[in-house]
Amino acid sequence: METTIELPALAWLVTAEDQEIPLTATLRYTTGDPLAVFVDFPAEAALEGEDVSWTFARSLLDQGLRTPAGHGDVQIWPHGRTRTVLEFHSPFGLALLQFPTSTLRRFLVRTYEVVAAGQEDMAAVVERGLNALFGGV
């Protein structure tokens, strides 16, 4: 049986003018994809006016809460004592968001309570990847 954890989280979108626009994102984890975490944004927070979901490694979030992490589309780093920055890059531009560090930590702890680090079902992950690569054949 698949378990999903969802946690609504206040975030601040940092604009090019250094304004902080508050929004609510949903942090999501599912045992069906145990190596990943998801950050879902509502349509009103996206350029295209549609819901947007970013997926990245759970280990990246774990590392980024302590030290700068990531080289590519998702980068995470601590910002002061109370906030953590998540930077998302896409072909359309980038989004810089700040989350309360305590919220991200609470979410991460809940994911590890469901699937401990190193206990992920790798066979299922590999099978899903191969199915996606070969079109489910």
Rank of each mutant, 00 (worst) to 15 (best):
M1A: 15
M1I: 12
E2Q: 06
T3I: 15
T3A: 11
I5P: 09
E6V: 11
E6H: 06
L7W: 00
P8T: 06
A9V: 15
A9L: 07
L10E: 14
A11Q: 09
A11S: 12
W12S: 12
L13V: 10
V14C: 07
V14T: 13
A16V: 14
E17G: 03
E17C: 01
I21M: 13
I21R: 11
P22S: 11
P22K: 12
P22R: 13
T24Y: 04
A25E: 08
A25M: 10
T26V: 14
R28F: 05
R28K: 15
R28C: 12
Y29A: 05
T31H: 09
G32M: 06
D33A: 12
D33H: 09
P34A: 08
P34I: 09
A36G: 06
A36H: 01
F38K: 02
V39Q: 09
V39W: 04
V39M: 15
V39L: 11
D40P: 00
F41K: 06
F41E: 05
P42A: 10
P42H: 02
A43C: 06
A43M: 01
A43Y: 03
E44H: 09
A45S: 15
A46W: 06
A46E: 08
E48A: 13
G49E: 07
D51V: 08
D51C: 03
V52W: 12
V52N: 06
S53R: 15
S53Y: 01
W54E: 07
W54P: 05
T55G: 05
S59P: 00
L60H: 03
D62F: 04
D62G: 03
Q63V: 07
G64S: 10
G64I: 11
G64F: 08
R66P: 00
A69T: 02
G70F: 02
G70V: 03
G70T: 04
H71V: 10
G72Y: 03
G72Q: 02
D73S: 09
D73R: 03
V74G: 01
I76C: 03
W77Y: 00
W77D: 01
W77F: 01
P78T: 13
P78I: 15
R81L: 13
R81S: 08
T82E: 08
R83C: 00
T84D: 11
V85N: 02
V85F: 00
L86S: 00
E87M: 04
E87L: 11
E87C: 00
F88I: 15
F88M: 14
P91W: 11
F92H: 12
F92D: 14
A95R: 04
L96C: 08
F99I: 01
T103V: 15
T103Q: 13
L108Y: 15
L108A: 06
T111V: 03
T111A: 04
T111C: 04
T111R: 03
Y112M: 12
Y112F: 13
E113V: 11
V114M: 09
V114Q: 10
A117M: 03
A117I: 05
G118A: 10
E120C: 05
M122P: 01
A124Y: 02
A124F: 00
A124C: 04
V125A: 11
V126P: 00
R128V: 03
G129Y: 02
L130C: 10
L133Q: 07
L133C: 01
F134R: 12
G136I: 13
G136S: 10
G136V: 09
G136A: 09
